[in-house]
């Protein structure tokens, strides 16, 4: 399980959100044993937390293309 959680932390938002949506769909419509459902639920919760964290903590990264190389962008202010 720890490995899975680590993987979730690396997921981009839309992938995590899409998987969360699939899990909810599956919980709502699928036939699962209680154990399967609990496992899905737990993964869903980790995904939801990850998504919320991304939305909360993300900071826009801006770079600048200069000839063929990427530079940090500093010219905004």
């Amino acid at each position: 399980m720890a490995e899975k959680i680590k993987k979730i932390e690396e997921l981009p938002y839309e992938v995590a959100f899409t998987e969360l949506g699939n899990i909810v769909e599956s919980l709502e419509t699928g036939e699962h044993t209680l154990e399967e459902a609990m496992a899905l639920f737990e993964r869903g919760q980790v995904l939801a937390k990850h998504c919320a964290m991304l939305l909360d903590k993300a900071e826009l990264k801006v770079k600048q293309l200069s000839d063929d190389s990427l530079l940090e962008f500093r010219g905004e202010e």
Binding site: F17, L20, G21, V24, L27, A37, M38, F41, G44, L55
Partner: peptide, 22 residues
């Protein structure tokens, strides 16, 4: 982001409700 947060919280509620229903 504001809409994403709303839909995230909605889907999270569905997750919890789904589990409770099970």
């Amino acid at each position: 982001r504001a809409e994403l947060m709303v839909s995230l919280s909605e889907i999270n509620q569905r997750l919890v409700r789904g589990m409770l229903a099970i």
